[in-house]
Write a protein that binds this DNA or RNA. Structure first.
Lengths: 143, 143
DNA sequence: GCGAACTGAATAACCTCCTTATATAAGCAT
DNA sequence: ATGCTTATATAAGGAGGTTATTCAGTTCGC
């Protein structure tokens, strides 16, 4: 197999197809609308106690947007906020059990959606996807 | 390697990391802002003469949104519209040479951005990405 | 051929997501 | 203590998207 396409074109096609697939799930929101809310919930489940600024940096959204998402999630009872004991300016966000459940629910809905659209993935396919995720995470890492 | 994560979780993580990477390129617009404009241009370069409704279906956006994108691209001189000789209701959109140049330019800018963030991709990595694109395209295919 | 039903695109009104600019408030250095 | 810096919050606005509706052209039954 030759490599006729440039890296930029390859990545561009990847991001395009990912976007189109994401749109399928856009209105798939048991508790909340908006994919960003769920991405942030996912981040908060991965790391316990994340500052608003860290959310913004990781999700590559502006700080005010991160504040807003945190406020919306808090209003829905899916996260809790507390001020950082080590730095009174900072606000630490934590996922609640309800938030974790919401994320689980979302995943179940997503699975239902994908079930009909994805064939059984072979082990090779899963590895390909996992490697792609790794590369994307590296690229998107703050820096 | 075992498969501890579900397909839904795997795909969810893929879409999340793709989204974060996409945001890097959001304000990388030589001629136009908005990634959707460029996705549509890409589609139009791939297929000659696409109807507004087909754009909407492929990009998974609403028909009015597709109309609007086509109008914006036309205003920028990047596409031309003509009514379908076989069906007077339908509007056929075609990319112009300027549109194609804009897409090329965009790709150059994107390459510049990615250069520093993506290491040299091995042939294996490229294959993994290509396979992932295939799977996503299947999933997002109209149906 | 003619009206009725259908279909493709355009228009209108609106909402969500996300931005920049700015204010508030806490920490830190001198 | 005063002045700079840093973390979040607030305010105002723009881009990207939606649903509901209208308009025009096609198709079908008769």
């Amino acid at each position: 197999m030759s490599t006729p396409t440039s890296t930029a074109e390859l990545i561009s096609r990847l991001l395009g197809s990912a976007y189109r697939t994401t749109r399928l799930a856009t209105h798939l929101s048991p508790a909340l609308r908006g994919n960003t809310n769920y991405r942030v919930l996912g981040l908060l489940r991965q790391f316990d106690g994340v500052r608003v600024g860290q959310i913004a940096a990781h999700e590559r959204i502006s700080q005010p947007r991160a504040t807003q998402v945190a406020a919306d999630l808090e209003a829905a009872g899916l996260v809790e906020r507390a001020s950082d004991p080590e730095d009174g300016r900072a606000s630490i966000v934590r996922i609640t059990p309800e938030g974790s459940s919401a994320l689980d629910e979302r995943m179940i809905h997503l699975a239902g959606l994908l079930e009909s659209r994805f064939p059984e993935l072979t082990e090779e396919d899963r590895a390909a996807i996992a490697r792609t995720i790794e590369l994307l995470e590296e690229a998107a890492a703050t820096g």
